[in-house]
Design a protein around this nucleic acid. Structure first.
Lengths: 211, 211
DNA sequence: AGGTGTGAACACTTTCACAGCA
DNA sequence: TGCTGTGAAAGTGTTCACACCT
């Protein structure tokens, strides 16, 4: 049933979900594609096309039922469950993630933190104790980790990825500025701040020069 | 001359630039589109198409000269200069950026940090003193800020964006999980960690369910 | 021979426009 | 009437294949 769904569709689905949750908080019970589009900076047709890839959730003439659609989107995105996350690299990025409340609120539970540095291993982060990267396989399997966040220097990232996947991790979020190779079927997302800054730099520079 | 260039092209250009710098470090003097493609996980034709949008930089039968192409890419991306960056929100994300060495290495200088919290205002971060968000306009204009990074709660983000742009900021990197509205011509990039995690969640969930 | 630069073919995404249901 | 769901059209991005230069 489920054919290939584009990346941009998924990104927008996240957006719609956030919009719906906000609308529910404001006690709205129904919503139209037009309203959803305004919230997420897209068009009504786009919203309907996106949703239609997963089913028919609306009522003609009326719109979508906020609560119902919220549930459907949660199920589609797979966030109607909790995810177990291990963090490799207890530096600043790691700390930022650790303290980011939305993370837990949205269903992602940090169940392990690892680092190589001797002065970090053994320390406590909240209820977690930082463990040595050597123990990665152990943490992934014993803690039943689904997702691994890589926040280590570029040179160490590939090895961490290989071992995490081998040990059973099912998806990877990579902050290291390097192109990781992972087996077919293991989703990988990169977050590269320098790249984002360069995109801004380009946009400004080319606007300056283009007539 | 410069027609519309796609976002994905720019992302790949960043990649090529990083690859070239690495190759230069390894004392390679020329490089083919095939090699560049391998490095960035794309195809040779794609590399050539991307580059050809900005000019003809290669020699047929030979490839591209590493140093020369590096310079051209730097100029295209606008990173042959330094950028002045202000950071609004001195929380964990802010701290992570502040300590991220690649940031400065790649040409982005943090020249101002602001926050609302009284217990943060006045503190020192390296050579910078955290200033109150009230002073945003002042910082942007007196420090000649190009880019503003927004790392404040979602509810405060739009106001910060409006004031930053009004005061002369030319681009915005937004970490707040909300859809900002900025005037036409002001580039905006969003970094939304929950969204990235949800994309992983979807990929895993749909793979499980699809046949 | 070797590898670029590029039009043409192809694939994918978005927008349009309207039939159809509440 | 109002708004969804969806084929068809338009627009964008990627891949192919080859002429052309060194």
């Amino acid at each position: 049933m489920t054919h290939k769904v584009s990346d941009s569709t998924i990104r927008r689905m996240s957006h719609y979900l956030r919009a719906l949750e906000e609308m529910d908080r404001q006690e709205e019970t129904t919503v139209s594609s037009t309203q959803l589009a305004e919230w997420g900076g897209t068009t009504a047709a786009q919203v309907r096309k996106d949703l239609s890839q997963f089913g028919s959730f609306g009522k003609r003439g009326l719109g979508y039922e906020v609560r119902g659609l919220t549930e459907r989107l949660r199920a589609i995105l797979g966030v109607d469950r909790r995810w177990r996350v291990a963090l490799v690299g207890a530096g600043r990025i790691g700390a930022a993630l650790f303290e980011y409340p939305n993370f837990r609120l949205r269903g992602f539970d940090l169940v392990g933190v690892l680092d190589v540095a001797d002065d970090k291993v053994g320390r406590s982060w909240g209820e977690l104790t930082i463990r040595h990267v050597e123990e990665l396989e152990d943490v992934v399997s014993s803690e039943d980790v689904d997702l691994v966040i890589i926040a280590v220097p570029a040179a160490a990232a590939q090895e961490v990825a290989d071992r995490a996947v081998e040990a059973g991790a099912r998806g990877i979020l990579n902050f290291a500025p390097t192109q990781l190779r992972v087996p077919e079927g293991v989703p990988l997302t990169d977050v590269n701040l320098v790249m984002e800054m360069e995109a801004l730099s380009f946009a400004i520079t080319s606007a300056e020069q283009g007539s």
